[in-house]
């Protein structure tokens, strides 16, 4: 289990990570999403004790990384494609890691076989392609058979076959009861892999919710009915958000599956009821809209990006529940 408590990292006057409190649970794949520069890597580096938090803590099983005696046996991490020393062979890189944490040298060959690098174990890392280095990084993460895995952009540089391989790997690691915390900027990848999403923008937490729930909350229904005004009252009384649309109503809210039943019980005729599932891209765009550092400035965009009115926290987990 990973726990961030008010984790904050300040560089000069920029709050790269701003008061993040979230718990990453075992047994599922938790996706960590955010635009470039949102603070994902910094958060992961603080978790692994590479960077020192300005405030707050990042804990693994209630302990800081530096307090773990043989950390590789508890946490496996892939942080960037540059793994090990280019002048070292893949085998000696993994052997060094194994020795440092009292891990059996047998694990070296097992890990190399797991990632499909057993044929090139004696080659120098400097001769590896980006995809091979990524696989070696994953082998490094797995070397201590850890129960917590942290992957920063693991699909970078992998070919399509490699991408589906790592997806299966992450799913199976989670199924074995491990904590899998994986950052990505590829939403489609997360939609297929993650059970739960943690989304940050501008260093701030904007969502911490199951993927399913995040997709549901932005689902809308279009209702075509001759009795639009009557139905609007019924639906509004049931707590749904209703707005007028062409030939009927547009409805959103957490409970939109009840529209048919509500109409039926009030004997209101419906000619068409259509649900539009919003994609993860839509959800993501809405959540991070207020937070991206790199969006194009359009005339409609307020010049003060952190105005309370458009605070992305409006769609945070509290709002979802």
């Amino acid at each position: 289990m990973i726990r961030f408590e008010s984790l904050t990292k300040v560089y000069g006057d920029k709050r790269a990570v701003d008061d993040i409190t979230v718990t990453i649970h075992p047994g599922r794949v938790t996706g960590f999403l955010g635009p470039n520069g949102a603070g994902k890597s910094t958060t992961m580096r603080m978790l692994l004790g590479l960077d020192r938090p300005s405030a707050g803590t990042a804990l693994i099983d209630d302990r800081r990384y530096a307090e773990l005696d043989r950390p590789l046996r508890t946490v496996g991490a892939l942080l960037e494609p540059r793994t090990g020393h280019p002048g070292q062979s893949a085998r000696s890189h993994l052997l060094g890691m194994a020795r440092s944490n009292g891990i059996s040298p047998r694990r070296v060959d097992e890990a190399l076989a797991t990632v499909g690098l057993d044929d090139v174990g004696r080659s120098r890392i400097g001769t590896f392609s980006l995809g091979m280095r990524q696989r070696l990084g994953i082998a490094s993460a797995l070397i201590g058979d850890p129960k917590v895995l942290v992957f920063d952009e693991p699909v970078n540089g992998l070919d399509p076959e490699g991408v589906s391989w790592i997806r299966r790997l992450m799913r199976s690691l989670a199924a074995e009861g491990r904590t899998v915390f994986v950052s990505s900027h590829l939403l489609s990848e997360m939609a297929d892999t993650a059970d739960h999403l943690v989304i940050i923008a501008r260093g701030r937490l904007v969502a911490d919710a199951p993927l399913r729930e995040l997709l549901d909350v932005t689902r809308t229904a279009h209702v075509r009915t001759p009795e639009a005004s009557a139905l609007a009252v019924v639906l509004a009384n049931a707590g749904l958000e209703v707005s007028a649309a062409e030939e009927g109503l547009r409805v959103s809210g957490t409970d939109i599956d009840s529209i048919g039943a509500l109409a039926h019980s009030h004997r209101i005729r419906i000619d068409e009821l259509a649900f539009t599932g919003s994609s993860l891209e839509d959800v993501y765009a809405r959540l991070t809209a207020g937070g991206t550092d790199y969006r194009a400035i359009s005339p409609a965009t307020p010049t003060h990006p952190t105005t309370a009115g458009q605070d992305p926290a409006a769609l945070s987990s509290e709002a979802l529940r």
Partner: peptide, 18 residues
Amino acid sequence: TSEYSTGSIMTTLQSVPR
């Protein structure tokens, strides 16, 4: 210094955080 120039310092500090 080669640990910093090659990035292997990450491997080192992950293996031995102290």
